[in-house]
Design a protein around this nucleic acid. Structure first.
Lengths: 331, 331
DNA sequence: TTTAGCAGATAAAACGTTTTCCGAAAAGTA
DNA sequence: TACTTTTCGGAAAACGTTTTATCTGCTAAA
């Protein structure tokens, strides 16, 4: 394996110069940089990430907290996209992303968690699937020891950024589209919301309410707690009295759809997230597609920036509306 | 953060002695070990994995090759289990597992792949979801530069182990169970097999054939190529003429089930893998549950053993038969 | 008594980077 | 010219482990 020393020798410069070129530091003349890059090319040199990680106080590694307490394949799909996006961006930025399952932190208190992460040289974290007051989250951001990028958790300070789509707008968009498409519609909407007092749920709910006001609709609200089962039950009870069922998540939409099928009635249902499992639920459905891959990529990039000294901020990711159908899914 | 040096100072021994204690090397008296461990305890010392990884020529890290070319949530679920098992075992063994997506290796030739992996200090690989002649696999095991543990790929040599369930027996078991349960059965079995010339497919097919001989059944064989769509088509064509449909994978079972629903006829279907998506496919189904988590844990442990110098071998993992049903799935 | 062997412990050299600090040369200023 | 500033490049010290080679004593064999 070629090391940075070999490159330096070949290019006729010092090791530190090579390092500067690799990391795009200033104070290197263009011609030197070219010579170094040529040497890198020639030797097919790839920096040893481990050594870099050990040496660098600054860059450190980024931990990706993976939440799979809820065991469904929907979550798996989302987590997988997050993981993939994070790892690809890491490769691009020459940093390391370390996946960490919640269950690996089990039984550790705040101090132990911190020790564990630090022993892994983790300086920043990308976190998703948590509510603001989650104890794992609290534990980790407690003493501002780590730079954090929170997906869909609205905490912003010097060392924390917040990234996510505009849930309110997205809910509004997809609900509007579903309503517009349905010509037999006469104003009876059943909205199954997420968790009470959850940021994401509240935003989506607000979006729905704003739309209702705008279009002068009557909306019945029921809390589905992001649970497929709960949504199923709610639909059994109230589905038949409404013209359209709008759910704050795909999993709940699937629950609702199942219930409708079991009752042998049809109602347009719309979901939120854009997971492929939707395709298996029954008829076609509108949903909001979140681009988990891109969000995670951006989160890692932002985390790297934070670790480099920039301050926390809010990043809004784009969303799109899609229609998912079984026959499109299968390969 | 406490370092190994702090521990050494507190325990009144040399740094190297502490290292030996941590890694359970010989040539340390029991009393010294106790003293060191007490110091470790007191300082709540956790070794820095990155430094260890850099320093150690021997231990190195284990790469987990993640195959998500096929984009379905079924694959995601399996990959997630593999990942989780691998990471947990790594934590237990104090080694590092590095997930690597196929797409991260894209565009690299054999030499580049090797360089890339080595620059990450990767000494061993756990690989799944590949056929024996896959080019990525070839690239990686080509010059025996890495210790490999192959899940469901039957290659064994000094630096390669092979792990997996007994697919032949498992297929036999689940098919027998399904046939026995079906009292209206009169001997017409439709078997939808996997890929031609794939190890796993061949094993499962053999299992089916052995059972057929044993029970004196007539079996129609069709190659579904592990494709949901293909299985769907096969079922449309031949499903109605058979009493039972046995598929070599859950995804194909789902395709078959869908087709039956669309044709509005019922036939018992059985699958293979035990993925939760099955629950969404329709009626209940028998399947073989592979414990991906355990298999991956064991694979990582074996990889660590290989890196420590032991020779490649075959490991057979247990399987179980289960019945998956929608209402059991949902939370 | 000498020699060899061995267990237990250590000092120091790796591992491959990053980063700090320090020169030297070039450029700008008075 | 003399002095300051800027730009570029290099030497060397980190980073926190593992591992090698060496050094004690000590016991057993010759």
């Amino acid at each position: 394996m070629a090391t940075i020393r070999d490159v330096a020798k070949l290019a006729g410069v010092a090791v530190s110069t090579v390092s500067k070129v690799i990391n795009k530091y200033p104070n290197v003349s263009e011609e030197t940089a070219i010579r170094v890059n040529k040497a890198i090319e020639e030797l097919k040199f790839t920096p040893n990430v481990v050594a870099a990680s050990l040496s660098s106080k600054q860059s450190g590694r980024v931990g990706l907290l993976i939440n799979t307490d809820i065991q469904t394949s929907a979550i798996d799909e989302i987590s997988m996209q997050y993981l993939k996006g994070a790892l690809h961006k890491a490769q691009e930025l020459h940093i390391e992303v370390v996946p960490i399952f919640f269950s690996m932190l089990e039984g550790m208190d705040e101090a132990e968690t911190e020790k564990y992460l630090k022993s892994q040289n983790i300086k920043g974290l990308v976190i998703y699937g948590m509510s603001k007051d989650d104890y794992v989250l609290q534990r980790v951001i407690a003493r501002e020891q780590f730079k954090c990028v929170l997906i869909d958790v609205p905490i912003i300070n010097d060392s924390c950024s917040h990234i996510g789509i505009d849930h309110r707008q997205a809910q509004k968009d997809v609900a509007r589209k579903t309503i517009m498409e349905n010509n037999t519609f006469n104003g009876q909407v059943l909205y199954i919301s997420g968790k009470k007092n959850g940021y994401v749920s509240d935003e989506r709910l607000q979006g729905m309410l704003e739309l209702a006001q705008e279009l002068e609709l009557a909306v019945s609200l029921h809390c589905g707690e992001f649970s497929e089962k709960k949504a199923r039950e709610i639909t059994f009870k109230y589905g038949s009295m409404h013209d359209i069922i709008i759910c704050a998540s795909d999993m709940m939409a699937i629950g609702a759809m199942r219930a409708l099928t079991d009752m042998d009635i049809f109602r347009p249902v719309c979901g939120f997230d854009g997971i492929s499992l939707m395709g298996y639920a029954g008829k076609q459905m509108n949903t909001v597609k979140q681009n988990f891959y891109d969000i995670s990529s951006e989160a890692v990039a932002e985390c790297s920036r934070l670790m480099g000294g920039s301050l926390g901020r809010k990043i809004v990711a784009p969303h799109e509306l899609v229609r998912i159908e079984y026959l499109d899914m299968i390969v």
